[in-house]
Design a protein around this nucleic acid. Structure first.
Lengths: 111, 111
DNA sequence: AATACTAGTAACAAAATGGTAACAAAAGCG
DNA sequence: CGCTTTTGTTACCATTTTGTTACTAGTATT
């Protein structure tokens, strides 16, 4: 929600601000996937089968640009790239945990 | 993240499931706006100035169809419509609270 | 008679996301 | 040597989602 101050550009709604970083259609799932371990590109892709590799590449770039994940590239053949959460990315854990919990209670358990 | 069972359609990743309901670009903010009080269409629109009325209309319809909010229409002139969270919508509060908290700590306070 | 008010809607435009195919470049194999 | 496999990324194009602008209706106010 946006306050008067937000209209002046002084501060923003915290939820709005957060959604600018993880508001994409896939970003929360990607971060959730990286929550506990660093993972290679292909590993993430396997775990999110409905996400095309092209879009995954794009989303990872944005997450890296926003400082939520790191990208470590190994100059090997075939190529290897590992993604991991930054401290800022880790700080999202409470949000992701609540999402997971809600999904468990309201979706998974009702199937 | 999606397990083997998810591929068979038996269960889904809780985060994925949740994002199917509130994964839009604006839905979390709309719910956040309705968190504590019922609000008229125009009130929501004023509080989320970057969200066009057309898209707001669409998102509200989807939220209603998904059982997260209710829409109460008063046959008055000029028209009046009030939106409010359902119990299911209320159950999202912990998620929205964590989002708010994260935004406060990581965005608002760093301006 | 002209204007304001509210909750939208229609037509059209832009941005975000998706599908497919292709790339490099070393390694394994016959 | 030619042939295939592997991985992360990209180019080109199609589709879906989100955004802009103008407009409606019935009553009340100016």
């Amino acid at each position: 929600m946006v306050t008067k101050a937000a209209k002046k550009g002084e501060i923003k709604c915290p939820v709005t601000g957060m959604l600018q970083l993880i508001g994409g259609k896939w970003k929360p799932i990607i971060l959730y996937c990286l929550r506990s371990e660093k993972r290679r590109f292909g590993e993430i892709a396997v775990r999110i089968p409905d996400l095309s590799r092209k879009v995954l590449t794009e989303q990872l770039k944005e997450l890296e640009a926003d400082g939520l994940i790191t990208r470590q590239q190994f100059n090997e053949i075939p190529p290897r790239v590992e993604y991991a959460l930054t401290a800022l990315g880790q700080s999202l854990s409470p949000v992701l945990n609540e999402m997971e919990k809600w999904g468990m209670e309201n979706i998974i358990s009702k199937q």
